[in-house]
Design a protein around this nucleic acid. Sequence first.
DNA 1: TTGATGCATTCCGATATAGGCATATGATGG
DNA 2: CCATCATATGCCTATATCGGAATGCATCAA
Lengths: 116, 116
Amino acid sequence: MAAMARAATTSDAFNAIAEPQRRDILALLRAGERPVTDLAQELGMSQPRASKHLRVLREVGLVRVREAGKQRLYGLDARGLRPIHEWVGGFERFWNESFDRLDTYVQDLKQTRQEE
Amino acid sequence: MAAMARAATTSDAFNAIAEPQRRDILALLRAGERPVTDLAQELGMSQPRASKHLRVLREVGLVRVREAGKQRLYGLDARGLRPIHEWVGGFERFWNESFDRLDTYVQDLKQTRQEE
DNA sequence: TTGATGCATTCCGATATAGGCATATGATGG
DNA sequence: CCATCATATGCCTATATCGGAATGCATCAA
């Protein structure tokens, strides 16, 4: 079979939030629903660009759209962030431990160096 | 200027953990340091593949390497996950709120449908 | 020194974006 | 029906990966 490329990023929340501008959009949406143009302007990006990012966010379920006449109001649906929070949270004790670990690591380095 | 492509994924933790296999590697490393081959075998991936993922993780600072004779032991350095945890945590109250929001959303949908 | 072992790299192919720009769509107001 | 506003898409380019396979490099054992 042919070589495979990177997994589709548009298919999961982890990938969706890997893009800084999409994180910005999500952050803005905490303040409430907003139309595309609004978001685009506030974030200094073109409208098509905003629409595309919103599409990705919609596809992974992090935002939802509501038709409001001529506009489409995008709103936050943060439920998809929860699994991420939990996954990352699984490392909490390790980043607290890290200093010690780093210390022993440095120790090992010195050790190794002296043995040479 | 020419069109720009996606931001380099190898340059930040958000992107590093967007790749499932890299998440798997990090999860495994919670149990302690491990040589490349070990990780590769346990995760059922080729050695070069493991090395490449480890390189990305190293570049964003999520793992560190220690030379141990013929082997290179990779260890977790979870400190880089903390900012992510905090960013995502900033949405916590929203995913708790979500049910209500979703309800009103569904209401709106019904409403809209009936009006057609 | 000669292998063998453990990894990192390089080269190549297929593909997935991100962005820009132009354009198609849809709904609204006259 | 027509012009306009608000968005979504399509097309095209430059890149960035991810993967595999082969290869380069140390280091270790005999």
